[in-house]
């Protein structure tokens, strides 16, 4: 896992874990790796991992069992919401990038529909 060095790493760790959860690599109700395991696996600072996990605990996507570690929430509404937010963030990036190429919102929809049709053939 390579991180960008001009964006706070705790934010990127959060993004990474959200993806792991949404794609089912980390399952609802299951324990996630320990802080140190994650730090070694991602080659990042332990304190930075700690900060990311703290925030995710605060958001409710993770919960802590005392002395056992961090677990993924089983709250399906919250998981759905997190997935929607991830999708929205990707769409934001896409639309902004298209706009910067001078493509209007209407054109984006048209181009995307055509593109998907072409690809599906």
């Amino acid at each position: 896992m390579e991180f960008k060095d001009n964006i706070p790493i705790y934010l990127q760790i959060k993004q990474y874990l959200y993806r792991q959860i949404i794609t089912g690599k980390l399952k609802p109700g299951k324990k996630i790796p320990s802080v140190r395991e994650l730090a070694v696996q991602l080659t990042v600072n332990v304190n930075t991992v700690q900060r990311a996990l703290q925030q995710m605990n605060f958001e409710g996507i993770l919960y802590t069992k005392r002395g056992e570690g961090n677990f993924v929430t089983e709250d399906t509404t919250l998981l759905e919401k997190t997935k929607r937010e991830l999708i929205d963030a990707e769409l934001d990036k896409f639309v902004q990038s298209m706009n910067s190429l001078g493509v209007s919102d209407e054109q984006i929809l048209k181009s995307l529909t055509e593109y998907l049709k072409e690809e599906r053939k």
Binding site: D5, N6, P8, I9, Y10
Partner: peptide
């Protein structure tokens, strides 16, 4: 380091 990155700098 995280304060540096928060200013969008590597």
């Amino acid at each position: 380091t995280e304060a540096i990155r928060a200013d969008n700098q590597s």
